[in-house]
Design a protein around this nucleic acid. Structure first.
Lengths: 197, 197, 197, 197
DNA sequence: GATGAATGAGCTTTCATTCAT
DNA sequence: AATGAATGAAAGCTCATTCAT
């Protein structure tokens, strides 16, 4: 009658470490911190993840998969391109408010600790499930005639850089209004930047 | 007959640490690393900066001032708003190629190591000289009737998030073309996003 | 319908641990290593040996018994003392080539990890079955008038130190020729050292 | 007016670690043990030796050099080969009594922890200053016509294996008499084994 | 007998910072 | 101003052993 399955244990580590890493940073968070948050011994942690770096990489995959699935839903919906942009912005900002650790991990851990992800997550290897869906979104928009054709990364940089920048400002408590209130204007800015001219 | 003034010594620490922090990251870089790159003893380092964190904050001020001055020049020029956008993008990308450590420091050290800048650089305190000039740019554009009026941070997030995102992709060697080639399309995207509707 | 008796299980642990200890060393080899080589769980290992140290001591007894029996056969044969020396050398070198783990365990684990054998294998307690047969060999030789009378340990040190030294050099791949080729000259050296003067 | 030079500090680490390693074994001895025996902080230890393994290798070189020098003196003396054998045995046994840690390190640390010396001390690399002098001893004896010509390692194994074996028995407190008393008979045994036939 | 998750003490090593010189 | 040896707390990780199932 095991209460807690191995899978559940692993998930609780993922959840605890995601929070700690995104709140405090990768180097500030220690394995004892994580273990004690999960309610497990340090030694036992290593039965689930063989190193701190490997945990970091698995977290990245986890988040990229999550975001990829969310965008996939939007891609497969019957919305217009302009509406899809709004939905993506909305999903991203909602996530940033409800589970800030996911977006923060992207912004603060992944984007800045190159050395951690160097081996095993080169290029976009570990975030491909997310990037792929963004590619599909753009390709669809261009095929529809809604978006003007351009280098994917230029459009990607706009979209994700913008959203990331806003969440950063939000996290710094600099924004005068709740993220919610920016959804429309930001979606419109993005649409205006990318739409067919 | 001192060859090297105190000011020059300080500058050489700034220059060396900027490179090391942006290449390797804040936590990976040690004070001995910096001291040895400067050609100075560890003990003497502390005559110039009283802690590693304080060095990090001074670097941030240094970079924000530099960027602020560059944007100020553009603000004070006789260019149209659209041209100014191009000039800012151009300045930013040129810098990312010639002195990548400055932009990388912004992206990788400042944006992600909150704990380091928490005390002393809350909010925008340490980057105000840069943010102020960006505010002037937007205000001017709106006054001119070139840009539509909106929450400053929404516009700021677009501009800086976009540029930061592109430089990140560039640093990851993911961009298929040199940064140079993106200047026009990105400036146009930004202009279309912000211009009067 | 148990396929594997308790005795067989124990033997397979002995065999696996002997190999691992002698190849990698006592401290490098972990109980999980041994268990996985045997194909058994870590927990179950402790049903057979109550600690790592106890396993080490049982291995020592096992090897000493084996060697003791081999020498006993030679002692009980009708060979001359000189021939017996050759047979002992030959047996030892053959073993070092066919089952190197036994000799290596003697040389590398027993001789150097005093702390492990301190309690329970003091003095010659755990190797007495082997030492006893060597004593018999010498006593017989002296009785025969073939060997000159001397302190047993001086003769024992010569014999076993010499053989151990050669096997060490062999294991280090320093010997220019196969062990085989040294049998005669070494037996002769030993005989010349010990024979009646 | 520095009391303790860097060189002296290093020597005190060598001396302390040699004792601890040979008494307790390599894996049982911890860096804190060594540091506290020297009266130094753990961190400072690493200013002198960059790792525990490197310390172990430097100790080996140190001992091999010491032994090499002692044998060199004997080689360069005007003694007969038989007398030289006695001198070597005597030197070795004296050392085993006065500075047992040196011989014990050879026997217990070097001979058994292959993994520690694998990188950097392959073959005889780290003990060559000692082995070389033993080679000279044998070559001289053969040139003189005192020793019969044979594979060097066979003679070396006899000599060093024998001495090592005796010191081992001594260390185990198995020898009925002090080492001193064995010098003559052992020298004679060695001489009889190696002399011209 | 058998399993393997769990424990926790303890290891090697690092590094910001200090301070006697 | 300059040196660099010294400190010591703390990190990541290991592993013999236990125990609920």
């Amino acid at each position: 009658m095991a209460r807690i399955s191995k899978e559940e244990r692993k998930n609780s580590i993922i959840s605890a470490s995601l929070q700690l890493f995104s709140e405090r940073g990768f180097y500030i968070t220690t394995i004892p911190d994580i273990a004690s948050k999960v309610g497990m011994s340090v030694g036992n942690f290593y039965n689930y993840f063989t190193s701190k770096d490997i945990l970091a990489k698995e977290l990245l995959l986890y988040i990229a998969d999550y975001l990829g699935q969310e965008i996939k839903k939007i891609n497969e919906s019957n919305l217009t391109t302009e509406e899809k942009i709004y939905e993506i912005v909305s999903m991203y900002f909602n996530l940033a408010q409800k589970k800030p650790e996911m977006i923060e991990y992207f912004l603060r851990v992944y984007l800045s600790n190159r050395e951690v992800f160097k081996d095993g997550c080169e290029g976009m290897v570990c975030v491909s499930s997310f990037v792929t869906e963004m590619m599909i979104f753009f390709d669809d928009g261009v095929s529809n005639g809604d978006l003007h054709s351009q280098d994917f990364f230029s459009a990607f940089g706009l979209f994700m850089g913008y959203l990331g920048g806003m969440v950063f400002l939000f996290g710094e408590k600099i924004l005068p209004e709740p993220l919610e209130n920016y959804k429309s204007s930001i979606s419109l800015n993005i649409y205006n930047a990318l739409k067919t001219r």
